[in-house]
Structures are given as C-alpha cells and as structure tokens.
Write a protein that binds this DNA or RNA. Sequence first.
DNA 1: CTCTGGGCTGTAAGCGCTTCCACTGCCCGT
DNA 2: ACGGGCAGTGGAAGCGCTTACAGCCCAGAG
Lengths: 334, 334
Amino acid sequence: MSDSTIYEVARLAGVSIATVSRALRGTGPVSAATREKVLRAVEELRFTPSRLGVSLAEGRHAANGIVFPDLSGPYFGEVLLGYEEVAAELGRSVLILSARDRAGVPETVKDLATRVDGLVVFGQTLPDALLTELAGSGLPMVMLAREAHPGTEAVRSENADSAEALAVHLIAHGHRAFALAGGHDEGDVSQRWTAVARTLGRHGIAAPRPVECPYTVEGGYEAGLELLGSGPDVVMCADDQVALGVILAAEELGLSVPGDVAVTGWDDIMAARHSRPALTTVRQPLRELGAAAARLLDELIAGAEPTDTTRVLATDLVIRASCGVHPVHPPEEP
Amino acid sequence: MSDSTIYEVARLAGVSIATVSRALRGTGPVSAATREKVLRAVEELRFTPSRLGVSLAEGRHAANGIVFPDLSGPYFGEVLLGYEEVAAELGRSVLILSARDRAGVPETVKDLATRVDGLVVFGQTLPDALLTELAGSGLPMVMLAREAHPGTEAVRSENADSAEALAVHLIAHGHRAFALAGGHDEGDVSQRWTAVARTLGRHGIAAPRPVECPYTVEGGYEAGLELLGSGPDVVMCADDQVALGVILAAEELGLSVPGDVAVTGWDDIMAARHSRPALTTVRQPLRELGAAAARLLDELIAGAEPTDTTRVLATDLVIRASCGVHPVHPPEEP
DNA sequence: CTCTGGGCTGTAAGCGCTTCCACTGCCCGT
DNA sequence: ACGGGCAGTGGAAGCGCTTACAGCCCAGAG
C-alpha cells in the first residue's frame, strides 16, 4: 500500500506532524481552524495512519491471535466466528494460525506472539512447555476447550455432567453393550469418557476402552467398521463427525441405526440435525465459547492477573432419533 | 509480551545490534565466534525479534488479510482453511475480518489494509467504491467467488456450466415446474440462475423468479414455506443450507422429498451428504478456492501486475437422492 | 617492508507514529 | 500595567529493527 505518511499530511496542512496526530486522535488541544486544515489534507491524501507506526509508538498491537489444530469441519469455524465478532467489537484485529505442520510450530507461534497483544490457544494444540514459556513471558493467554494452564484463563463447555446424562439416557433405552469411538487423549473428550465410565460402572456395566480415530467422518467410518463387528448396542462418539462416519459404516455393514445399533455424537454441528437418522448429541455453545475467550483475553490484556481459572459453559443434551426411537418426537424449530 | 529487545541481546553478547541482526538473519559476514556468542545470548534471553520493528524496517508485513461477509456455516471456514494453509507455507500470517456491521466497515477495512501486504475479499462483501480505492492505493487484492474488480485478480468456481448440467439433469427427471430459492444479487448465484433460465428456456419451460432469502437453513425454511405452496416439481437452491431448510419446510408441510418435490443445493457441504434425503448438489472446491487466492495474492505482492483476470475452478455435479430416485445409486466412498 | 583488499564490526540513518516538553501568544485577574 | 495560566503549536526523543556506510585489522601481494 503506497500510502501517504503523516509527514505529507503535515506539510500539506502546513502544520507539524504532532499537530496532525493530535487532530486525528483528539488528544490534546487543536484549534478548530487547524483541525479543519488537517482534515482537509487527510481527505485529499486519503491518509490512514500506518498501523505499524501507531503500534510501535503505542506499544500495543490492537490485535490478538488464535491458534487451532489442523482439524477442519464446522467446529472451529463456529468458534472462530464468535471470537472474531467480539474481538472486532473490542477494536482488535484477529490473526489466525493453524498449527498443522508440527515442525515449525514453536517458531511460528512465537512470531505470532510478537504480532499480538494476546493469544487464544485451542485444546492441546501446543506443547505444555511452549505454553509455559509464552505465559512466562507475560503474554496474556486464554485456553479454549481445556483446563487452564498456569498463567492463563480458560473456557470450555461442560463435559462430565452432560456425558453422564447422555449415558443415563442410553441406559434407559435399554442399551447395555457400549462402544466408544474417538481417542481419549484430548482434555475435553477424556473428561467425557471418564464420566461415561463412572456412570456405566454405577449400573454394573463394564466401560469399554475408546477406539482411537481422527475426529473426521472418515475416521469415524474406519472406527465404525472395527467397532461394529463386536455387535454393540450403542456407539458413543467423540464428536458428530465421528458419529456420522459410524453411521455410514453401519449402513455399509447392513445395520440399521438406531434399530440394530444406536449412535450418539457431540457438538451438534449442522449436519447432526439433518443426518439420517438425526443425531442425538450434546450441543456445545460454539460461538459463545469463542466470544467468552475474546472477552477474557481482553481483560487480561487490560491488565487483569491470570487466575488459572477454567470457565465452564453449559451444554444441552439434544435427543434425536439416532439413540433409539422415542414415543413422542416433537419437531425442532427451524 | 515483555520480550527482550535486540539491544539487550547485543549488550549481553558484547556486540552491536547490527551484528546481532546479521547473525540472526544470515545477512552479511559474521565470524563463527561472534555468531556463537549471539546465539547464546538469544537463547538465554529467549529473544524473538519484534515483528513490528522488523516490518517497519523491512517495509513489509509478511501478513495478508481476508475479509468475508457475516455468513457463518461451513463454506467460509473451509475456504479460510485452504487460504491459511497456503499463506502459512508462504511465510505469511493471516488476518481475518468479518464485515458484519455495515457501519464501520470502510474504516475497519482501511485499518486492516495497513496491517497487511495484500487482501483477499469475498464476493460482494465490500462496496465497489471501496474496492476501487483500495486497489487504486496499490494494495494487492484478490477477489473470491466473483469476477475480478479492476486492479485485482479473482478466483471463483465454475457456475454456468454446472448450473446448466444440473438443470438438464432435473429436466431429464421429468421435472417441469421449477422454483428457485435464494436471491440473485450476488455475483456467483446470479450466474447460476441465468444459466438455469437459459436452459429452461431452451426446453420451453418458463424460468421462475428466484425467491430471496438469507443463505441459512432458517432462510431456506421460510422460503420453502412460501415456495412450496405453489406446488413446484423441484426447488433449486442457492446453496446447501437453503436446500436443507427447504427440505425441513417440505417435511413440515407433509411433502415427501423427492417424492412430491425434488430439492437441490450447491456447495456440497458436509451436511449435504448426510442429510435425509442426501442432497443433490454441486461440489465447489472450497479449500482450493482459498489456496488459489493465497497463491495469486502472493504473486501480486511479489510484484506481478494485476490483470483483472478471473480464474475459474471446476466443480462437480453430485447426484444424490434429493433430486429424484435413480435406478442405481452406488454408495459413496466414506 | 609497505600497500591493498577482504573480512568483520560498529555507527547511524531511517521506517511512521505518539507524546513529553518547551515555547509563544493572549486573556484575565489584580 | 503586569504576571500567571493556558490554549495551541513545534521540536525531538523514542518504539525495535534493518542496512547502507565507514572503519578497523590482518593476511597476502609486490
């Protein structure tokens, strides 16, 4: 952008750059006549202050970053949207970074860190050592979809209670042979599996070991082919994409859902509602998750001390057809 | 980020900042011993050069922006992912801006423009006057999902041919009473409707006026309630979300899809494949769209002159159940 | 033994802006 | 009539870095 600088504006207006700056930001006294001259010059030159100069002088970026894993799908998009919206309201630009190539990630993230006033980090995207280093350097950070790391804040949605409620519901359906699809290494998911295991245990049901798979439709399909061989009553999945994949696998194997096997997801992505059968799942407040992170980050940037606290957002159990047919099934609002 | 500066590194290493800079970037000769000292100091201070300083001195940001409309849904997320991936490969950070609140958009975009080396702009997100001003200021720009604006490059996916193919397919199904859901004001969509109208005309079928609606499930639902009253054979929708909404509306009205009315979408979002019935649609190469935009932008930033050219990416007609039952319907790969 | 040419370093001039400080008038109180 | 105060303004010092440009020293050439 071959933009004009504050010097050209000052020259054209016949004043000093200090006056231009004051006139534009409304800091310090400027006579009406002078302001007028400055504004005219700004108009004529189509001057917009260089963010670089402003940031360097102000010592702040008016921008913050968000780093998320490679995963595609609707989940991150939604959270990102909520995040960007609030950040924009707070006058901050948003830098995104997808930590896909493990190789250069630490450098890339550190570079990102010098472009922003604060950072939101998704789940287990970054190694703990790096988080510690970043937090230690005084970078305001908010963790998303996991517990707070020392020196940060965190927001996640509720896991254990909803998982228990879902398990209880499935048990009430008469399901006894459970299968779990989707690894348990990630913070959020492992909390759910733990709660499920506890709940099943209380009912005298043995908790299965989750079958690891990528959180994609393809991953779910593969896991489904493997799982369904043992003839479970129900497959609980780490997220909706996995569940959709499992349903495809069931179809492939000639099994009816929920007739032969029930399937549940997590997240309530758009496809969950439109799938056949419609997916029983747990709705996460994705936009709110992003929005809350943006607000927390803003507080930290404003000077609040990190409290290592994890905020928990409520979820909704969404009962649809995939977990077993219900006597009454009121239509959803569009 | 209370990071250390190059001065502290220089002092600790006992050299000048110029030497530190040279040692770190490998520009200019530095003795092995000195380099060693510098690296040790960098290590000890955990020094990462401030992007602000570097950019100001280099006169480049190593970052580019992307601005998209308010719309949520899977579409933008996918494109964004493709964009970010390539941008990262090219060593550029990505700033995102959602142009939702019409009020401050010009200022916000201009501010964004001073943070980046180039900009990708989605569809009709920004008024033409603003595009002209930005392009006129020498900002490298790539338009996405629309024709090139003077002074820019553009990438979109193919519209007319696929729309015609889809219309021909529907006619072959025996459908005659067509309805169109989703406004025609946007560049991409209007190209499709034009092609559909032409095709229908060739078959002596009157082309209907598209019913305007937001490109969301809700919008499609409302439009569906309105459209389905006149008993069309088939509803062609501006995108998959609208189509899913129309299907819900049909369900609400007790109509079977595709028995009573066929429905088609556009984009092939994830939900299209899992919906009941599975949606006949046109697959857009979303990631590639974003990736191509990133590469084009990089060329412009590297100094290429804008050619006002629009690249067109091929699409795939995806025939599923929603347009009418087919004798043979091979299962899709997961 | 002097001269020359590199190799290696440091000095300093920006890059575009904000803001502290100093300075000039001018109005007002006394 | 005179000093104080303040609105209005310009000068200049950074903010953290890159990069000419210049200087130094030493080896090899003549």
